Amino acid sequence: MRFRSTRPEATADSPGVVIPETMRAVVFDAPGDADALRVASVSTPDPILSEVLVRVVAAGINPIDAKTRAGRGAAGAITGWPATLGYDFSGVVVAAPYESHPFPPGTEVFGMTPTPRTPGTYAEYTVVPSLSLARKPASLSHVEAAGVPLAALTAWGVVVETALAHAGQRILIHAGSGGVGHFAVQFAAYFGAHVIATGSSRNLDWLRELGAAEVVDHTTARFEDVVADVDVVVDLIGNVADDTGTRSLEVVRPGGLLIEVPTGAWPGFRDAAAARGIRSTGYKVVPDGGALATIARLLDSGAVRVFVDRVFDLEQAAAAHRELEKAHTRGKIVLRVSDD
């Protein structure tokens, strides 16, 4: 492997650090199924302006990755091939913009990249805007931390910043055992809301452990038959399965709020909600390092936890995508990229 000359900014706090010219990364050459993913040697990215270069130890996998790989999701923003997927990461800073930067070389961090504006995190190195970083929770391994950023920030934005979760509020969360869902249940419960979560029978007890006051087994009951008069619905499914989104309107009180999270899963939700006197909004995750730092404190305190269902090596990215697309994951799937 060829190495670059040591960069002054990379070594101000860690003399002797060298950065390789190339790195291993999972790439795909055109939209396709999971088998389109392959491991290749690509150029190590160069940070610019306020970006930090991070050695990736682990990378989280999210549904948006699979959608983008298949030609949906964020695929329209890909400007060149081959492309690398991945938003979530946990790793170690190897190059900072300046000597007194808040994340100097050697700092363990986690966060989100603006993929595909920059190469993704299914790689040995990634570049990250400083404002999208936070220090890794000390109580978590890199594998655990890599499962947090996108899912937890989405849940935080939906439950805390949009629904304004509080005591006395009734919040229905669909797919409560998934990546975003299991954080949404915990955040809503932490802030005092009465949480109702839907899930499969194997996850009902676990959802109660996370803080759900009521659970509905979607395989044996229709939630609209047992739930009513909720203030907020956090819909993480949409109308792609059994018209979950449309049916949710039946259980929201007049003037209540429907938050529709999956992009494109129910294009007509705004008009449908308005026709019933229900407020509605979509949501897009904000890669806010400040919010992530708050979430890190909750994780370190034990008030919130992350659940990693499966861990795959970088070379097994295709298998990880196939597992994700089964839609039965509890919590998160993570890629192990390098040694801790």
Rank of each mutant, 00 (worst) to 15 (best):
A70W: 00
G71P: 12
A74W: 11
I61R: 03
R55D: 00
G76E: 11
V57L: 00
T84G: 07
N62P: 12
S50D: 15
Y87A: 08
A77P: 03
G73S: 05
G80M: 03
K67P: 00
A74M: 14
S50C: 00
K67F: 11
V57Y: 00
D88N: 12
W81F: 14
D88V: 06
A70T: 06
V52R: 04
L85P: 14
R72L: 14
G71K: 11
G73M: 13
V57T: 06
A59D: 02
G80A: 14
T79Y: 00
R55K: 15
A77R: 15
G76S: 14
I78W: 07
D88L: 07
D65Y: 05
I64H: 01
Y87P: 00
I78Q: 08
A66R: 05
E51S: 05
V52I: 14
N62Q: 09
L53D: 02
G60W: 03
L53K: 01
F89E: 04
W81G: 06
G73T: 11
S50P: 00
G73F: 06
G86T: 13
D88M: 10
A77N: 12
A74Q: 15
R55Q: 13
K67E: 06
G73Q: 04
A59H: 04
R72F: 15
R69S: 09
I61D: 04
T79Q: 13
S90H: 09
Y87T: 12
V52C: 01
A70I: 01
G71W: 01
K67N: 07
V52M: 02
F89R: 11
G60T: 04
V57H: 12
T79S: 15
V54S: 12
A75N: 15
V57A: 03
D88F: 08
W81H: 05
I61L: 15
G86V: 08
K67L: 15
T84D: 13
I64C: 03
Y87Q: 13
A83M: 09
N62W: 04
A70D: 09
W81V: 03
L53P: 02
E51T: 01
P63V: 07
A75Q: 10
V56L: 01
A83Y: 10
G73Y: 07
V56Q: 01
A70C: 02
R55C: 01
I61N: 08
E51M: 05
Y87I: 06
L85Y: 10
I64V: 15
S90Q: 08
D88G: 11
N62V: 11
T79E: 13
G86S: 15
R69G: 07
A58S: 11
T84L: 12
P63F: 03
G76H: 06
P82D: 08
I64L: 06
D65R: 01
T68D: 01
I61E: 10
A59C: 02
V54Y: 03
G73I: 12
P82E: 11
G73N: 09
V56D: 06
R55M: 00
F89I: 12
T79N: 04
I61G: 06
A75F: 10
G73C: 09
A83C: 13
W81D: 03
